[in-house]
Amino acid sequence: MRVTITKKEKTYSLDAQSDQRILYAGLNQGLPLPYECATGTCGTCKARLVEGEIHDLWPNAPARSKLKTDRGEFLMCQSSAVTDCEIKIPGKLPTTDPVPDTNTGTITKCEKLTHDVLHFDVRLNAPMAFHAGQFVVMNVSSIDGGRAYSMVNCASATDTLEFVVKKNPDGNFSDWIFNSNQENQTVELFGPLGKAILHPDDEKNILCIAGGSGIAGILSILHHACETGYFKQHAGNVFFGVRTVKDMFYLDRLSEYVEQANGNLSVTIALSEHEGAVNASDMSHANLNYTTGFVTPVTMSEMADKCENTLAFIAGPPPMVDDAIKNLIMEAQLGPDQIRYDKFG
């Protein structure tokens, strides 16, 4: 099927199989289509059908409530083309790099990090290049729909992607991977996706605010920054929010990055449900800081007046991301071009 996208003076077109999501087909063909979550939640990839017929792959997608369906609006990430189509999309077209593609892989390792957080590796059938901080949409055949997961590692081209998943009472994928060992299972991936990345020429101090499994993309950014010597010129401050001491994970990696950054990286673990004061001498990693409180207020109390020439990365549950954005703009006086995030919710 040929899908034609008309802007006022320009026309783009893409070819999509009848079972292929229009967003994925377009991104894979190098078209810079707008998107954020790529999984039917955010509504950023909405488009309007001018001519032709589409099939709605997920009529109950959360973002559907944001559409004017009576005017032909639909989600490109949840629709396929039944016939040749002409569509319109709002806004300027962003840039896409690298070009995402469909890939398959095998789960090679599953390791529980806490009672409700699990690390897993996927060995890809074809290597993938991605930027630090990007994500993929993951599908397994036994579960409907895709989920977005950020890579924990970072490599210019790799055949192994590392991920972390938090147990979610309503999450089919998390049930699937927590309830039995899924090593050797096949997964399908589409990616890389996402704009919350660290560019080599950013030339700013970095501030990272992460909640729970949102630390995945932040670790990828820290990995990249350490590898490229970014902390020789710039400071890094990371605030990682979890509930209690029992919920902390990836401290080995964080501690290792602090070591590598040679005094220019500070990592603070914010414990939101810890009772009493935190005794740092009880903690296993002496080069990390520990405090109590929710991660955004903790970040603000330490950083609100120290954010000049700073680039902020935010990752975590959507309410935490929203709260951090609000505080960075209103309290820390950051401009929109200093804040990067990908909201999956």
Binding site: P34, E36, G43, T44, K46, K66, P90, G91, D322, I325, K326, I329, M330, P336, I339
Partner: peptide, 25 residues
């Protein structure tokens, strides 16, 4: 920009309004 309801998504600092959906001002 993307027709987000501003009553939920906007932050106002003096005359400048930021829509927190995509940080357009």
């Amino acid at each position: 920009h993307m027709e987000e309801p501003l009553a939920d998504s906007a932050l106002c600092k003096l005359d400048v309004m930021t829509c927190t959906k995509h940080l357009w001002q």
